[in-house]
Computed example of a mutant assay.
Amino acid sequence: MTQTNKKPLILITNDDGVNAKGIAALYEMVKDFGEIYMIAPNRANSGKSNSITVEVPIRIKKIRDEENLKVYSCKGTPVDCVKLALNKIVPRQPDFVVSGINHGTNTSVSVLYSGTMGATVEGCLAGIPSVGFSLDSFESRADFSQSIKFGRKIFENVVKNGLPKNICLNVNFPLGDIKGVRVCRQADGVWKEDFDQRKDPFGGDYYWLGGQFKNAEPYAKDTDEAAIKNGYASIVPTKVDMTAHEVLENFKTWDYEVVD
């Protein structure tokens, strides 16, 4: 009987683009755990959440081919990258999907907008243990050394223990020295948008999206926002089922009879 000892297959992606420093750091974090397929957008795709490309063809280009590392640039969203990888690129179902390391946190409600977490959720939907990693810095040359060290230990736990069905992990790192890791909940907050209105050379209006995050519970100690602000890495187990199970019975009591 022939035995095969295949290395785990790890699909990595991001939303900052295939040339971002964060995805290079992510590769350093997980490279010793298996064979790596890196399939990432050809340019920044922040804020794309779970969006997919349907109006134009998706193009992909292999840019690196080495032992245990294949790198592709995809002209699509982070979720496009995962979908295309699973359907056309990787030789078998990946054992893990990891996304990031994002330049900027994806704490609280930002998880809903994040392309990093959109790709993570897509891997989760495919039944693959999936983790999204983010760093509290938007700097293109940010120091990821602490993130790599702590992220490697977090990923080692995922390899060892697996993840429950339909659960992925949203991991955020503070900038600088990390005191430790906290498993916590998503903070209650909201983005307050501020659109900067400008005029183009022809007199037409155009807008730049800006804004600030407002933490609705700044004194809570058990949230991802609190962990990051106090120098800890945060881990939020994240569900793909968005059903509000706790209020299902309440809505069943409503009167739904339609009277002509």
Rank of each mutant, 00 (worst) to 15 (best):
I235Y: 03
F251I: 08
D177Y: 03
S140L: 15
F155A: 09
N215Q: 12
F202A: 13
V56P: 13
G118Q: 03
T53E: 07
Y113P: 00
Y37F: 10
N68G: 07
W191H: 13
I101F: 06
Q146E: 14
G203L: 10
Y113S: 03
V183F: 09
V82S: 02
K83S: 00
V90A: 03
E257K: 12
T107P: 10
F202H: 13
K6H: 04
A20G: 05
K48N: 10
M29D: 12
K221Q: 14
V98E: 07
D224V: 07
K179D: 04
N250R: 10
Y206L: 15
G47H: 05
G22R: 15
V98S: 11
I10S: 01
G189L: 12
I39N: 04
V71F: 05
R43P: 08
V258Q: 07
K229D: 02
D196Y: 06
G127Q: 03
T4M: 02
V159N: 12
N215V: 08
I60N: 04
K83I: 01
V190K: 13
V190P: 08
T116H: 05
L69Q: 10
N102R: 15
R152E: 10
G17Y: 02
K31Y: 03
E55A: 05
G34K: 08
K75P: 11
F213V: 02
I235E: 05
W254Q: 12
K31E: 05
Y27T: 11
L86S: 01
P201R: 07
K179T: 01
M117R: 06
L248F: 12
S114W: 02
G17A: 02
Y232R: 01
V240P: 00
R185W: 02
F195P: 00
G162A: 07
P57A: 11
C168F: 08
M1L: 01
I39K: 04
K179G: 03
V240K: 01
D200Q: 14
N5G: 06
S234P: 08
N250G: 11
K229P: 05
R182E: 08
S140H: 15
F202T: 09
D95S: 15
T77I: 14
L209D: 00
T243F: 13
N50I: 02
F213R: 05
S51R: 05
K153I: 14
N250V: 15
E35P: 09
A216R: 15
Y256E: 11
N42A: 13
K149T: 05
V131E: 07
N161W: 04
N68P: 04
E139M: 12
D241R: 01
P218I: 14
I52L: 05
S99W: 07
E67S: 06
A233I: 09
S51A: 11
R59M: 14
I167W: 00
S46C: 02
N19L: 12
T238N: 00
W191D: 06
E249V: 15
P57V: 14
V259A: 09
I39W: 06
V18R: 08
F213L: 08
A119M: 03
E246L: 13
K153Q: 13
K149P: 04
E35I: 10
W208Q: 06
K221M: 15
G203N: 06
K153T: 14
K48P: 02
V159T: 13
V30F: 15
T77M: 15
K6E: 07
N50Y: 01
K199F: 07
Y232W: 01
Y27M: 03
P174T: 04
P164F: 01
D222C: 07
L248E: 10
S51F: 02
F96L: 09
S145W: 03
Y37R: 04
A233P: 13
A187H: 02
E35Q: 14
